[in-house]
Each structure stands twice: as structure tokens, then as C-alpha cells.
Nucleic acid binder design. Sequence first.
DNA 1: AATAGAAACGGACCACGGTCCGTTTCGACA
DNA 2: TGTCGAAACGGACCGTGGTCCGTTTCTATT
Lengths: 196, 196
Amino acid sequence: MSKPLPLLTAPAPERRDAARNREALLRAAAELIEGCDVRAVTMEAVAAKAGVGKGTVFRRFGSREGLMAALLNHSETAWQASVLSGPPPLGPGAPPMERLIAFGESRMRTHLQQGALIEAAGRTWGDNYAVIGFATMHLRYLLRELGVSGDLTYLATALLAPLSLPVLQQQLGFDGMSEERVLAGWQDLVDRIVGS
Amino acid sequence: MSKPLPLLTAPAPERRDAARNREALLRAAAELIEGCDVRAVTMEAVAAKAGVGKGTVFRRFGSREGLMAALLNHSETAWQASVLSGPPPLGPGAPPMERLIAFGESRMRTHLQQGALIEAAGRTWGDNYAVIGFATMHLRYLLRELGVSGDLTYLATALLAPLSLPVLQQQLGFDGMSEERVLAGWQDLVDRIVGS
DNA sequence: AATAGAAACGGACCACGGTCCGTTTCGACA
DNA sequence: TGTCGAAACGGACCGTGGTCCGTTTCTATT
């Protein structure tokens, strides 16, 4: 008699040792990064500190960038939660425009704070659709709430783009802008797009 | 008697063999890249094809990313020339708004076309102020011509950001937009910023 | 408790980017 | 043309990210 094969293949549960190792690796990486330059932390060091072999690190996270992205995922998830159900003005409850401004400021602060890690995660993080996708969706939602008309998906990506780390770094570094000026600039941009 | 030491240290002229090797390396790299995936081209292969040692490659270009950036510099320089003194509507002669639209389209096309190389050049290219700086300046100039008021430097960077490769890739890939839609979206963004 | 097979492990191994330093080449000046 | 110091050369060498595959560990099933 054949098994009742599920129509939708289950998400493949994780073996207990695998879960333990993932946990240990994330903790080890976090501890090593704290106090050292991220770039100086080698994969072998992380593996050693977690008490596993190097192969295991790559099995779990695919690449160095993958490990860094996994670290970022923790704070990203928390951030998403505070956007979806945290206190206003970032979370629900405040008027859309206030939420929008809070969103921009929060994103900018987060990106700058985690700059080194974001760079270390490279494309694995930057191309992470679960991240970009969420922010775009939320922005799109706020724009709709504000009654903006037009291609909201495009406008959302266009509003998100200047909040990306490389752009912020250029503005603060090369262009010599202050954080306040960058923030004010973004708010002005919002006004122009929304049409105040 | 002491030499007439120049007040401004001269740009340190390049020895003839050095110049020849740089040339040979750039040509070799270009030829290897043409037809292969950029990522499959190793530095040693470039050095071998150019008939020099590996050390020379790194002496000249600093890193793999540096070599890729140097390749991009050729087309970038040509592009800058066509913006500054090429035929309208990209070059001077057309009304500012038309130049602006042409600028956006041209930049988008260029970035998409050279995507692989840009990725291979990484931060060495992306953080290249000679590149970002030129585009920002020009955008700033056009905005001024259009009589836009406000923080033109910020607006220029904000207008440039959605034309960056990662954003374009997200829009065309994950968001499933067509190139036409992306272009139309950017033009709409311009209209909102300029205030039509 | 025994078994079997799938999943995970670990560390030797590989490839490539990047460095180092002894040797060679250039060109300025006599 | 000879000399000399600076600059460039080249390839052996190193470290690290990433792979491979024989061994170990888990867990479903009886």
C-alpha cells in the first residue's frame, strides 16, 4: 500500500541536529562579528566557534553572503513586525503620511546602522525579494491610502531606491550631506510624489 | 642647485612598458569576456592572454573589481562625452525636459546592457565618484534649467537611484515590469518632481 | 529494540584572488 | 654609451571561500 503522498510537498522539516547547528552557527557568527570587523571573520572561525565542520556552514547557509543575510534576517523580521503591528507612527494607528515619514526614517537608520553587515551580505541580501518585496508592498499600500494615483508599484520602488545603503553612503560621504538633510530631502520627495 | 620642484606634484607619468601592459591587459580582458561569462574569466587567464605575470595585473588595477571597473570606464567616458557634446536629445541642443528623458532612457539601457560587467566590478564601480558624481551633476544642472526649486542635489540623487542596476533588476525581474513600463514610471517620477 | 535509508556531518581538498620580494627594465643625466 | 636609482615585472606563495564524498546521526517504521 502506497503512502498518502501529499499534493503539495511539505516544506521538508528540519532535523533536530541541523536546527541545533544552525542556531549555534548564527550565535557564533554574531558573537564573532561583535567587536571585530565583519570582513575579518572567516567562515572557518565561525565553524570552529560553533563546534562544527566548515562543510556544515556551507550546507546550512550556502555561502558567506548567505550566512550574513541570515543574520540580517533576524532584525529584518523584527522590523517587519513593528511595521505591521508595532506602535505608531511606524505601525498602524497613525495617519498614512506620518507612517510614511516614519517608514523612511526607520529604514534609513536601520540601513546605516547595519551597513557593514549589509555590505558583507552583498547580493544575497540585496536581491532578497522577501525583504525588498515587503518594503515595496508596504510603501505601495501607504501610497494607495494617501490617494496617490498612477503606477503605484513603480512609485514604491522609486521611493525605496534612495533609501538603499549605497545611495545613502554617497549622499552622506561624497555629497557631504547631513543625515537631517537626507531625511528632509526624502520627505520633500514624498511630498512631490504624493502631490501634497 | 636644486630642481625646480613643481608646486603641484605632477600626475606621475607612466613608464612606457607600464602603459603597454595596461593596454594589453585591457584588450585581453575584453576579448576573454566577449563570449564567456564574465565570472568565469580568471585573473590568471587575463594575465596569460596578455603575456604578463599575475602580479602585473594587480599592480595595474589593484583588484579584480578594479580591472572590471577599468573596462567599464571606457564606455562610461564615451557616454559622458555624448552627454556633454553629443547629438540631441541626449547632448546639448534639445530642451531640458527632452534631455532629461533621454538621459534616463540612455542610463537605463546602458546599465542593463552592461549588467554582468557592472556586477563584476562591484563597489569599485558603484562607489566610483567620478561616475556617480558626473551623473548627479548633470541631473542637477538639468533640474536647475527646468526651474525646479528645492534641494537639487538630493533630488538628483533620488532621480538617479531608481536607474541603478539592482533596482532595475528588481523591477524587471521580481516585479515583472516591462522595460517600457519602467521607463514610463521614471518619466512620471520626473514629472512629479519637476511639477510639470 | 532493531533496521534501513535519508539527511547531515566534517575535514581534506581545490581554485582563485591577492601579496611579496628578488630580478629586470626603463629612462634621466652625464 | 655608461651608470644609477626608481619603477615595473613575474611567479612562487598564502589565505579563504567553496566543494566533495566517505562516515555518522537521526527518525520513521515495525
